[in-house]
Design a protein around this nucleic acid. Structure first.
Length: 265
DNA sequence: CTAAAATCCTGGTGGC
DNA sequence: TGCCACCAGGATTTTA
């Protein structure tokens, strides 16, 4: 499911039901989801109150009263539900966090790629991430500086979370379209003007995604409607909405990549 | 260094 | 229907 706008939407939806609640226990149904030793998680989490929930890149961070942070990464198919403990659990629920109000935070994750971390030092999980593209203080000059001495093609670089945080496959393709840049371009050939366009495009596309409450796919995620506004992602062989040329799909860095061969150079 | 491929997983879809 | 190949929002690790 989730890139930056989808995770941001999930975080905003969880604050109301969860901030102020205290964890009472953890039930692990798929041990590979848990990156912290499970006995340690089950020892340290109960009794800690949720003081805040924030997002960093595609991670959710629960700031806890005992000084720890609980991090969740939804990867491809994760979702988080707050449901009464009396309600039957969906079969794809992999981890259950008990709460002090007879509800549970349920980590549902069909493909089992999602991960849970409990750490005292957040840097252990989010220490190497690149800048947040929507941060107020992240300037176009900062963005241009990221490209200094960089090599390789644009698309894989945009997906590299140590380069810039939170951009995933959909928003990378949509950003390149808006900036009119071929995602296969070698980054050391991008002009200052092109980088300025790309900076604006990334911020615009991510903001639009958040404003539409993310993109919904299948049954994994609900509520968002940004999928109705895709210009190129998932539109292979369909006409470009700007010029009518069929959208091309190629594979770059092992990921499907969509672009207009006429508009994007 | 870049880069591709394999890995972790399940389920939906389309072709035959 | 059944079977099979292929595809999927991520990110790390292995192999060139």
């Amino acid at each position: 499911m989730p890139e930056l706008p989808e995770v941001e939407t999930v975080v905003r939806g969880l604050r109301g039901p969860l901030v102020g609640r205290t964890f009472t226990g953890v039930t692990v149904l798929w041990p590979n989801s848990i990156k912290t030793p499970i006995p340690e998680l089950q020892e340290r989490l109960p009794g800690q109150r949720i003081e805040a929930i924030t997002r960093r890149a595609k991670y959710l961070q629960f700031h806890l009263s005992g000084g720890d942070s609980l991090f969740l990464h939804l990867k491809m198919s994760g979702d988080l539900l707050v449901e009464p403990e009396s309600e039957p659990r969906h079969p794809h629920v992999r981890t259950v966090f008990g709460l002090d109000n007879a509800h549970e935070l349920r980590f549902k994750d069909t493909r089992k790629f999602g991960r849970v971390y409990l750490v005292a030092d957040p840097a252990q999980v989010i220490g190497k991430l690149g800048p947040e593209p929507l941060a107020d203080e992240f300037s176009v000059e900062d963005f241009k500086r990221l490209f200094e001495r960089k090599k390789g093609r644009l698309k894989p670089l945009l997906l590299n979370q140590e380069f810039i945080a939170g951009v995933g496959n959909i928003y990378a393709d949509e950003s390149c379209f808006l900036a009119k840049i071929d995602p296969r371009r070698a980054v050391d050939t991008l002009s200052a003007e092109e980088l300025e366009h790309l900076y604006e495009a990334i911020r615009q596309v991510l903001t639009a995604g958040i404003n539409h409450k993310g993109a919904s796919f299948d049954s994994v995620y609900r509520g968002g409607e940004f999928q109705d506004h895709f210009q190129v992602y998932g539109r292979a062989d369909e006409p470009c909405l700007t010029c009518g040329t069929p959208i091309i799909r190629v594979v770059t860095g092992g990921r499907s990549t969509h672009f207009c061969p006429n508009c994007q150079q």
